[in-house]
């Protein structure tokens, strides 16, 4: 029977919604236990949020000043020390998990399954390749299964649990070769999180400038939506990188995705395929995004957005 360890993603105060999505993936492993490990400087609040996720057997809280920031080189040796008690070690396929888990797998001398999108059995999984243009069914060899979970493929587990929280001390030598300097966020803390939002309004190269992105933000605020962007818009400097949606940005699955001035490169489409309803507004009637949009409207976004706002008012 599988014994699963999930590595919690959090910012020191709040558990990231990705963790509850990994829990849903873990439920497909017919596990006898699913434990969540919270590594933090002071993690009581995060541990409580993790303990509320339904299906969690136990939360391990590993508090250490060195764990203040989620640095792979610091966390990996601690997780490796725990790993032998488990059959599966899972993390979300976010930049947090992607950075961390290969470091663990390499030390455990096992391969990693990246971006698990479906569980067929405790060792057999589906994962996307070629920006999601093909799906491979893979079988992990003997040994601990280390994987990252494609969060857009799983919904968040319910929050009706009350697992016990156990404090753990892990005494391993931690490296001093990697030091956190700073984190610059784009300061949109009052807006919904792009990866968790039910609605996303997204802009591309067609938006034209940083100033013009204000219309995207304003519409998003009216809808209670998060703001996304295509790579072209981020490369052009219209909007910070943490808004990028696509193969190498964020993979999202909102109920409603509204794109403005995004042509729809396959790399971008890879990030929105799991959205409930896709709306595309673009001047170019041949833009590839119309091939996957549920509702397409050909036209100038600067004329359409005011009309939309009026219709929504």
């Amino acid at each position: 029977m599988a014994k699963v360890l999930i590595i919690a993603e959090h910012d020191g105060k709040k558990l990231n919604g990705s963790t509850a999505r990994v829990m849903t993936c873990a439920q497909g492993l017919s596990a006898e236990s699913v434990e969540i490990a919270v590594f933090a400087a002071e993690g009581a609040a995060v541990a409580e949020q993790a303990a509320a996720i339904s299906g969690v057997t136990k939360v391990l809280l590993i508090e250490n000043p060195a764990n203040e920031h989620a640095t792979a080189a610091i966390l990996a040796p601690q997780i490796e020390a725990l790993a032998s008690e488990y059959s599966h070690v899972l993390a979300p396929s976010t930049t947090f998990g992607k950075d961390l888990t290969p470091r663990i797998a390499a030390h455990l001398a096992v391969p990693q399954i990246s971006d698990i999108m479906r569980v067929e059995s405790p060792r057999i999984f589906d994962r996307p390749i070629y920006a999601g243009n093909a799906v491979i069914t893979v079988e992990a060899p003997e040994g601990i299964v280390v994987g990252t979970v494609r969060t857009a493929s799983f919904s968040e587990a319910e929050k009706t649990g009350s697992a016990t929280i156990e404090k753990r001390e892990i005494n391993v030598e931690l490296p001093s070769h990697t030091r956190f300097v700073k984190l610059e966020t784009s300061g949109s803390a009052d807006r919904p999180d792009l990866q968790a939002a039910a609605k996303v309004v997204s802009g591309g190269r067609g938006v034209g400038s940083t100033e013009n992105f204000k219309v995207i933000y304003d519409l998003a605020d009216k809808l209670g939506a998060a703001v996304g962007a295509s790579r072209a818009a981020v490369d052009a400097g219209f909007i910070p990188n943490d808004h990028q949606v696509g193969q190498t940005g964020k993979i999202i699955a909102p109920e409603l995705y509204m794109s403005f001035g995004i042509s729809g490169a396959i790399q971008h489409l890879a990030g929105i395929k799991d959205a409930g309803t896709i709306v595309a507004i673009n001047k170019d009637p041949d833009a590839p995004i119309f091939e996957i949009a549920d509702f397409g409207l050909v036209g100038d976004l600067f004329e359409i957005i005011p009309e939309l706002e009026k219709a929504l008012a």
């Binding site: 930049t95 950075d99 070769h177 990697t178 300097v181 700073k182 966020t185 910070p240 943490d242």
Partner: peptide, 12 residues
Amino acid sequence: EIDAGLETLSID
């Protein structure tokens, strides 16, 4: 480039 924004690390 991380999900939360831009993180700077100093590494040996």
